[in-house]
Design a protein around this nucleic acid. Structure first.
Length: 568
RNA sequence: GCGGCCGUGGUCUAGUCCGGUCUAGGAUAGAAGCUUCCCAAGCUUCGGAUCCCGGGUUCAAAUCCCGGCGGCCGCACCA
C-alpha cells in the first residue's frame, strides 16, 4: 500500500474526497470533495488568491466569468480546431493519423471536410480507398478526440456552446473593457479561479487527472516593447530548478538550479514576467508542503506546446506513485489570443502606446476632386464624397492606381481623387499586448498538499498540513466530562468560533483518541481543559507535529492563536 | 481505446479456485452508556453489506458464464 492508496483511504474515511456519482457506479474523471476536502481546497485557493492577486492589487485583478461560452469564442481561441482530432489507426502497423490530414493528403481538397461527421469521414475513407500512408494497410474506424465539452444554449440545437477548457478566454474577451475601466494601465493582470472541463479520453490517476477541475489562472498583459518586470527584484534571488528545452532535447534529467536573475540573463526564460510568476509559484508550492528539491520546471518543446504558446514551462512536483506531475503551467502566449479575438469579433483589442516625443510621419491624404465627381454624379455627389472620406487612404490609393474601383456600390474613378503627401505628428501607436500566463490546477494541489502532509507516527496518521491551509485550525477538548470541565471547554470553543477560527469541540472517547482524530484531519493545535484550568484559568495547547504541550492562560489564547497562524 | 489484474458494512479484509454449511465472519472506524483521565485503554449495547450494476446457467450464485460501470498496472492519448 503506497501513499496514494493511503490518502485515498483517508480521503474517504475523513471526508476529503471520493469518486463522484458513486451510488450510480461512479464516473471516471470526476471527483467530489467532502467537508474536510472542500475546506482544504478553499484554503489553498485563498492562499493562491492572497499570493497572486491581493499582494499585487493595483496590478492584478480577480474577475469571474461563465463556464459556458458560445462556440465563437473557442473558434477564435483555436480550441475548436486544435482540441478536436479525428484519428484513424492503421490496423496493420498500428500507426495513428489525423483522419482529415490523411484524406486531404491522398485525395486532395474535399468540400466541407471541416464539418463532416465521423461516419461521413469513415464512408469517404472507404469509398476513396484511403490507406495507411506508411504501409498501405487498412484503416480502422475513426475515433474522435474532442476535449471540449459541447452543449447548446437555449432550445436551439444550432446554438452551440462549449464548456471552457481553461478560464483564460473569459479574461481575453474582457480585456479591453476592463483595461478601460481600470484606467488603461499596463501591465495589468486578470485572474480567475473557477471550474473548467476537458473531456479527457481516459482519465486515470484519481484527483490528478480530472474531466472537471478548478483552475487558478492569471493572464498578465504587458507591452512587448517594455517587457521588464517592475518587481523582479522581489524574487531575483529565488532559486528555480530548470530543465530547459535544450536540456530536454539533450536528454538531461537533472535540472539546473539558477536564480531568477541568472535564468533571465542566460535567456532560459524569454520574458521577465513569466520568470516572476515562476518564482512566485516555487514559493507557493513550497508553502503547500512540497520541498524545493521535489519541484522543477521543464521547458516544453514546440510540438508539445499548446497552439497559442511561444514558450511553456510546466512546473512539476514529484509524487510517490505518479512521479513528476504537472501542477502549474507557465505559458508565454504572446499576442495570440487578443489578435485572434480581434480578428473573429471585429472588436479592437489594441492599446495605445504614447511615444516619448511626437514623431513626424509622412502620410498620404486624399483630396476629392468635387468638379469631376459632380460632373459624373450630379445630385449623388455627396454620397460619393462620403465614400471617399470613409475609405482607408493607402488602400484607396493602391487600388485606384490600377483603375476604377467600386466601393459600397459606388464606382470611384482615379480622376475623382488627388493624393498628396503630408507630414503628420504622431503621438503614439497602437499595439496588441502580450500575455504571460501562470495556471494552476487546484485539485491537484489539494492532493499534493495531502501527500506532502501525510505521515505516520506510532501507527497513527498525522496530516502535517501547513497551518495556513489546515481545514480545522484548533480543537477543544475537556479532559473529563465532569466537575464543570466540559462546560468550561465548551465556553472556550464558542469564544474561538466567535473570534473567526474554524474550531471543533470533541468530548467523546479518551483524550488520546481525540488527539488522534484531530491529527488525522491535520488540525495543528488542540486545546485541553483540565483540573488545573479550574484553579488558574490556563489550558494546555498540544502541537500536532511534536505532540508537545504548553500551558497558556485562557485570556491570552486568542493572541497566541493569532500569532501562531499569522507567522505560517 | 487495447491487454492484464481486481470490485464483499464508512475503511481494511476472510470467504470465490471446488455453488448449498454465508439470513456473509473478523478487525477497525462510528453512535449511546459505564469507567478511566493527557496520546486510538477496557466493558456493555447499537446501527451499518440487496457481496459494483444488469443479464444468464442452476433446485440453489458473493462464488460459475456474458455484458456494462469503476479502479490499478502496461501501451496509446494528455491543447
Amino acid at each position: 500500500m503506497d501513499k496514494y492508496d493511503k490518502i485515498v483511504e483517508l480521503g474517504r474515511r475523513r471526508g476529503f474526497f471520493w469518486p463522484s456519482s458513486e451510488i450510480y457506479g461512479g464516473v471516471a474523471g470526476f471527483l467530489d470533495f467532502g467537508p474536510m476536502g472542500a475546506m482544504l481546497k478553499r484554503n489553498i485557493e485563498r492562499r493562491w488568491r492572497e499570493v497572486f492577486i491581493h499582494r499585487h492589487h493595483g496590478l492584478v485583478y480577480e474577475i469571474e466569468t461563465p463556464v459556458i461560452m458560445p462556440a465563437k469564442v473557442f473558434e477564435a481561441s483555436g480550441h475548436v480546431e486544435n482540441f478536436t482530432d479525428v484519428i484513424v489507426e492503421c490496423m496493420q502497423c498500428h500507426k495513428r493519423f489525423r483522419a482529415d490530414h490523411l484524406i486531404l493528403e491522398q485525395i486532395g481538397d474535399v468540400q466541407g471536410i471541416e464539418g463532416m461527421t465521423t461516419e461521413e469521414l469513415d464512408a469517404l475513407i472507404l469509398e476513396r480507398g484511403v490507406r495507411c500512408s506508411e504501409c498501405q494497410g487498412q484503416l480502422s474506424k475513426i475515433s474522435k478526440f474532442n476535449l471540449l465539452f459541447r452543449t447548446n444554449i437555449g432550445p436551439y440545437s444550432e446554438n452551440v456552446a462549449y464548456l471552457r477548457p481553461e478560464a483564460a478566454q473569459g479574461m481575453f474577451v474582457n480585456f479591453k473593457g476592463i483595461f478601460n475601466s481600470m484606467r488603461e494601465r499596463l501591465p495589468m493582470g486578470l485572474a480567475q479561479i473557477g471550474k473548467v472541463a476537458r473531456n479527457e479520453i481516459s482519465p486515470r490517476q484519481g484527483p490528478i487527472r480530472l474531466r472537471e477541475f478548478t483552475i487558478m489562472e492569471v493572464e498578465f498583459f504587458f507591452d512587448p516593447r517594455s517587457p521588464e518586470c517592475t518587481i523582479i527584484d522581489d524574487v531575483a534571488d529565488v532559486k528555480l530548478r530548470l530543465l530547459t528545452e535544450e536540456m530536454v532535447k539533450s536528454k538531461a534529467l537533472e535540472p539546473v538550479q539558477v536564480s531568477v536573475s541568472e535564468a533571465l540573463k542566460e535567456g532560459y526564460i524569454k520574458t521577465e514576467w513569466l520568470a516572476y510568476f515562476m518564482a512566485l509559484s516555487t514559493k507557493f508550492i513550497s508553502e503547500l508542503g512540497a520541498p524545493v528539491e521535489s519541484q522543477m520546471f521543464i521547458g516544453k518543446p514546440p510540438e508539445e506546446r499548446a497552439h497559442y504558446s511561444a514558450q511553456t514551462f510546466d512546473q512539476l512536483v514529484k509524487l510517490e506513485r505518479w512521479g513528476w506531475v504537472e501542477v502549474s503551467g507557465h505559458a508565454y502566449r504572446t499576442d495570440y489570443d487578443l489578435s485572434r479575438h480581434m480578428q473573429y469579433s471585429g472588436q479592437d483589442m489594441s492599446v495605445f502606446r504614447k511615444f516619448d516625443a511626437p514623431r513626424k510621419v509622412k502620410v498620404f491624404a486624399a483630396k476629392p476632386k468635387v468638379d469631376a465627381i459632380s460632373a459624373d454624379h450630379g445630385k449623388n455627389t455627396g454620397k460619393v464624397l462620403s465614400v471617399i472620406k470613409g475609405a482607408d487612404v493607402s488602400m484607396l490609393r493602391s487600388k485606384l492606381s490600377s483603375g476604377p474601383v467600386e466601393i459600397e456600390g459606388v464606382l470611384i474613378k482615379p480622376e475623382y481623387v488627388e493624393f498628396y503627401e503630408k507630414e503628420e505628428a504622431q503621438t503614439g501607436e497602437r499595439f496588441i499586448p502580450h500575455v504571460a500566463e501562470p495556471s494552476f490546477g487546484a485539485d491537484r494541489l489539494t492532493y499534493l498538499a495531502l501527500e506532502c502532509a501525510y505521515s505516520e507516527r506510532e501507527d497513527r496518521v498525522v496530516l502535517r498540513l501547513p497551518p495556513s491551509i489546515a481545514p480545522v485550525s484548533v480543537s477543544v477538548f475537556p479532559l473529563v466530562n465532569r466537575d464543570g470541565i466540559r462546560e468550561k471547554a465548551y465556553c472556550i470553543y464558542r469564544d474561538l468560533k466567535d473570534a473567526g477560527l474554524i474550531a471543533e469541540f470533541d468530548d467523546s472517547g479518551s483524550i488520546g483518541r481525540r488527539y488522534a482524530r484531530a491529527d488525522e484531519i491535520g488540525c495543528p493545535l488542540a486545546i485541553t481543559v483540565d483540573y488545573e484550568s479550574l484553579q488558574n484559568d490556563t489550558v494546555t495547547i498540544r502541537h500536532r507535529d511534536t505532540w508537545e504541550q504548553q500551558r497558556v492562560p485562557i485570556g491570552e489564547l486568542k493572541g497566541f492563536l493569532k500569532g501562531f497562524f499569522s507567522m505560517r
